[in-house]
Design a protein around this nucleic acid. Structure first.
Lengths: 356, 356
DNA sequence: CAAGGGGATTGGATCGATCCAATCGCCTAT
DNA sequence: ATAGGCGATTGGATCGATCCAATCCCCTTG
């Protein structure tokens, strides 16, 4: 009873995992034939293949990862840095992306190695170490920034990589996937306009951040398309709570009937200010957020938000990575994914505000 | 300019990473001497060591991970499963733990391999595969449950592992670290009692969950120590928002002046109900949460919560793991860590309620 | 002066899977 | 009947680092 039969085969406690030679012996074939059974089954006569496969099954054989890496000169492992978030505060979006990345890498038959980093510089240092150890074949980047040194470095070394987050700089290296933030706020703004809102404020970040400008643009162009005013309806704030509230107060003073916030956190600040003034989010002033973080559904009223297709993004990153490994010289690929608006009560009761 | 000099040494584009033989040649020594320089430097004469070290530096040499694993029969890699959270909803606590684990593993010179799983059964299946591939030496478990099949399986195979989360069952296998939930709610309850509260309600989960009972116990014993009533002051709910609100209503009907919630999510539900009744969290009824999730600091008023020492927990897991690898037959070790109360405005203005 | 001894250094064998080139077996075409 | 051809199968060499045992060097001791 101590000696469970594992899913894939027999195992006597204390016995070393089966090797290729063991399988060959049992199947009465040469070692190379076992290797072929795994890597080029079409070379084997069906009956030989069956015999080898049976032996593999019976012994619960799996190729020794290190031995395989050594000979093949590839690790089938993807590296991914975990940013040491300063305040110990975790990033829900990246966390979901990470899970999705683990799925995607796994589905593609690759291992995922994660390691901590403090800064882009240190991240590059770790890239270098891992590459010299030949512990990874490629990297997936996240938290891309404006003048991100990682792309250039990896490009210079011809290391396959894919980034989640576009390269904002003029000169861009590398494959990337990103979420179309503008399309997200466009959907949110459109949703509000369709409900009859005319004075729709934007609660965002200071000018200059790539993500911020991208998302803001979706609001601006939708407002213009509908012939709605934008002047004075854009308030900026760093992401601290108190500042967010201050910015929200400014917007409400301009008598907006709806607010498009560029993050759920900002939307939460907006909720606070509404309540502080005796107004009810949703009923009196509509609010939308961004990221569809866990709190969105928990808030009262539940917050309409824009959900990023992170599973798809991770899959696409891995797909690009594999393509890059196969065709190292192919021109860099980019892909924007459309996010999805999740309508909830914070933007719902249109009848209460439809007098726009 | 395309040819940056990496932190650790020279690299001509297209050149394969240096091997031990390269270093030996350059340092005018045998291969084994290079190996000794890395693994048993005390065997070398200082001047030889210096020569080898210099060559290593100049070539930017790092041992090939796979070759080393193959020969040493150990991967210096820790495996860790990422649970495929059903609703795509991520778990902030586990996310922080994961970051801390990456740090701890790294600090101990180990790699961290993550892989996705759907269930404990599938997780065991993946353990088995990784072990047969000899891709990992050990595992760190999270999300432990009552009758967790993983401990027994790993124990049966004599695989080193450490769990974050105690083994609740009668028969317990394996090393573990856990956070002392009772001590956490005890601190919260004590904090409220010290502020003069006498009717302190508990907002928790249905009986039977290990974590829930543990945390509830801290409240119960603190109340009893102070001679305060507990009957009727404990409300249970599954973790859905609406149910949480319902349970909070029950508590408030019993005229509590403070609520100890067993999670920040539950505390949030409590906030909602207070507002629904025109009461202000903190000012009218004190509230504490658990986990110190990102929203705690963002709420208005900021939520007093119990912070779990996840960095310490991860460090301890790794420490136990290494000890287990060194001494496989040592009796299993367990460790409870004390959490820390983070007092914020939701439990502060004591003067307003001190008439208890 | 030769033998002894211990620290420093070395080459050969090995870990397990894959690459390569060679061989084997069998069927067809001459 | 034999050469030719092709599909199937095989052993030997190799990837890079480490284990092991042997050797080397230099200094002490009988």
């Amino acid at each position: 009873m101590d000696d469970d039969v594992p899913p894939g085969g027999v195992s006597r406690p204390g016995s070393r995992p089966a090797t290729m030679a063991d399988v060959a012996r049992r199947a009465q074939v040469g070692r190379q034939t076992v290797s072929n059974a795994l890597n080029s089954p079409e070379l084997l006569r069906p009956e030989t293949l069956a015999r080898v496969t049976a032996a593999i099954e019976e012994l619960g054989y799996r190729p020794h990862a290190a031995a395989r890496s050594l000979r093949r000169r590839e690790s089938r492992t993807i590296g991914h840095a975990l940013e040491h978030s300063a305040a110990g505060r975790s990033n829900a979006v990246h966390d979901r992306f990470l899970h999705a990345l683990a799925d995607a890498a796994d589905a593609a038959g690759h291992r995922l190695l994660v390691f901590p980093v403090d800064s882009h510089e240190q991240e590059i240092e770790r890239y270098d170490q891992l590459l010299r150890e030949q512990a990874v074949d490629a990297f997936v980047l996240a938290h891309t920034s404006e003048a991100d040194p990682r792309h250039r470095w990896l490009h210079g070394k011809s290391v396959p990589f894919a980034a989640f987050g576009r390269s904002w700089g003029e000169q861009s290296y590398g494959d990337w996937v990103d979420v179309d933030g503008a399309a997200g706020t466009e959907a949110a703004t459109e949703h509000l306009a369709a409900a009859g809102h005319r004075r729709i404020g934007l609660l965002g970040w200071p000018r200059g951040s790539g993500t911020g400008e991208d998302r803001a643009e979706g609001w601006r162009r939708t407002m213009e398309r509908h012939g709605l005013p934008v002047r004075g309806l854009r308030a900026a704030t760093a992401n601290s709570t108190e500042e967010a509230r201050q910015a929200a107060r400014v917007l409400l003073d301009r008598e907006v009937t709806a607010v498009v916030a560029l993050s759920d956190t900002l939307a939460l600040g907006c909720y606070d200010v509404l309540r502080e003034r005796g107004l009810r989010p949703g009923a009196d002033v509509a609010v939308t957020g961004f990221d569809d973080s866990p709190i969105a559904a928990l808030l009262d009223p539940a917050l309409t938000s824009v959900e990023q297709p992170l599973e798809q993004a991770a899959k696409e990153c891995v797909r690009m990575l594999l393509a890059r490994i196969t065709e190292p010289r192919h021109p860099y690929r980019h892909r924007l994914l459309a996010p999805r608006l999740v309508a909830r009560d914070s933007s719902r009761p249109p009848e209460a505000v439809a007098q726009g």
